[in-house]
Design a protein around this nucleic acid. Sequence first.
DNA 1: ACATTGACCTGAGAGC
DNA 2: TGCTCTCAGGTCAATG
Length: 263
Amino acid sequence: MPELPDVEVFRGYLDSTSLNQKIEKVQIYSPEILKGISASEMEIALKDNTFESTRRHGKYLFSELDTGRWLVFHFGMTGFLKYFKEMEKEPPHDRMLIEFLNGYHLSYDCQRKLGEIRITENVDKFTRETNLGIDALDIAFDPDWFREKLNSQRGSIKSTLMKQEFVAGIGNIYADEILFQSGVHPKARPNQLNDKTVKKLFTQIGKVLNKAIECEAQPERFPQNFIIPRRRTDQKCPKCGGKIEILKISGRSAYYCPKCQKG
DNA sequence: ACATTGACCTGAGAGC
DNA sequence: TGCTCTCAGGTCAATG
């Protein structure tokens, strides 16, 4: 789930449910998801604070506390947030539970525990130290820079798009969608793409991610011509009707249409 | 130095 | 039903 569009949706969710409410209690059920901070330190950092604002960079979500520190969420492959009142509504793999003074709860659920939660003093410093590239939806993300940078990349275009230190926010499934919408084969060499194709790729990064956010990252709401809802065997290409194929690239499955995507 | 693989975790679903 | 195997939208360390 949690690539850039999903995390942006989580951000809106946190904004509309959890801002400006006093945190009364914190329960950490799986302390192993905390990085660089102990459970008791985390409790102290959050208790009696409120979330004042949020930011997002790539797949990371940040929420500012009164103290000026930031709570940092990464969602791994299975993480999400849930806001609810009654404990019967608690999700099944709750790893950290925040209880607000108004009786509502915010849960960080992560089945596979590949996600991480930490505290940082400074978001920009954090993104620098984590070697995150520019956010894929940052207005400063520039086509000329993109062209230039592609020339220095080895590997496949798909693994390049997924590199967080190159551009932050694109993961396995949105990389496939961007390549499909651009008509580019996932194994194409980044430095061999012509200018027109690079331009198309650049445009589609923004279009695909923004469209997904608009659809609240729910595949069943995606446009008819998206390939994401067809990541199953024996599916047809939404553009040409041909058979969708699966490749292994860097250990991940790449779904693509061999007719529409040329290398 | 770089790109690719395996390990980290857990559970769902397929196949027998 | 119950067991085993494979796979899953991420990332890092180890490997070639």
